[in-house]
Design a protein around this nucleic acid. Structure first.
Lengths: 136, 136
DNA sequence: ATAATTCCTCTAGTTACTATAGGTTCAAGG
DNA sequence: CCTTGAACCTATAGTAACTAGAGGAATTAT
């Protein structure tokens, strides 16, 4: 049995965030001690790890709710989980593309060595969309 | 002179967002018609483009406020603008790294062709951090 | 037993918008 | 000139995913 603080340490999810996840229905409202403190089992630890991991991968809370739902009905086809992942993959590729073009541009900006704002590439580039290399 | 709607069309920033930016001090509270409607000049169009462009690149509103401040004091050194860009570059590289490892993993997940949840790689991978390839 | 730490709930704040309600003004056509 | 429909106005509230703070109770360590 873990206290909420231990669970937080073990999963890397902050204490208030665990309580928030409980509100959102991502972790169960577990049993309490006589003094009203939450006590978590190993199962809850795993569930929270699942949630944390999913959040790290950029799934929304709504996505995770679906995924948890699915994982609790093992008889169903996995095509729903599959489609959530595919949808997410497209997103992710778009984000990578955008960020790469951003990185190119920032690298250029960060090379700025002008003495005054007049000649600063950062300001210039931001002001003039035509100067951009990428397609953001 | 542009109405707020024209400005929105020209910059790709939605009307309510322009009003929001005005509240946030990113665009000026411009003159109004006798009927209290905003009328923008070409200068405001450029300023809003700067803002939009900066947001696209992922700068926060606070960052942009600083950048605008800097761009209005051309006598200062550009080192502040520079450091904002550099800070942002580090962020961006970290995000790219994370997303790439995410993409690898999602690609793997999306290949899932199991018939039931039991064998679904999506659920499995999310549940078990040890299975991951990346370092998220 | 007492002190330090951790826990509890509840409310409000954060970022960057987006949506809605209820009302006014503008521009075009008759 | 007048009407009508689109675009405008303000103000409030909602969104996601937390984070912070107040004020107080329980647990743990000495």
């Amino acid at each position: 049995m873990y206290s909420i603080g231990e669970l937080a340490r073990l999963t890397g999810v902050k204490v208030p965030t665990i309580r928030y996840y409980e509100q959102m229905g991502l972790v169960d409202a577990v049993e309490r001690t006589s003094g009203n403190q939450r006590r978590y089992s190993r199962a809850e630890l795993q569930r929270l790890s699942f949630v944390r991991h999913s959040r790290d991968l950029g799934f929304t809370i709504e996505d995770i709710r679906e995924l948890l739902e699915l994982s609790q009905h093992p008889e169903q086809s996995c095509s729903d989980a599959h489609s959530i992942a595919v949808r997410h993959l497209a997103d992710t590729r778009a984000r990578i593309k955008k960020l790469k073009s951003l990185e190119r541009e920032l690298r250029r900006l960060a090379r700025c060595d002008a003495d005054s704002i007049q000649d600063c590439a950062v300001i210039e580039t931001l002001a003039d969309h035509g100067v951009c290399e990428g397609d953001h």
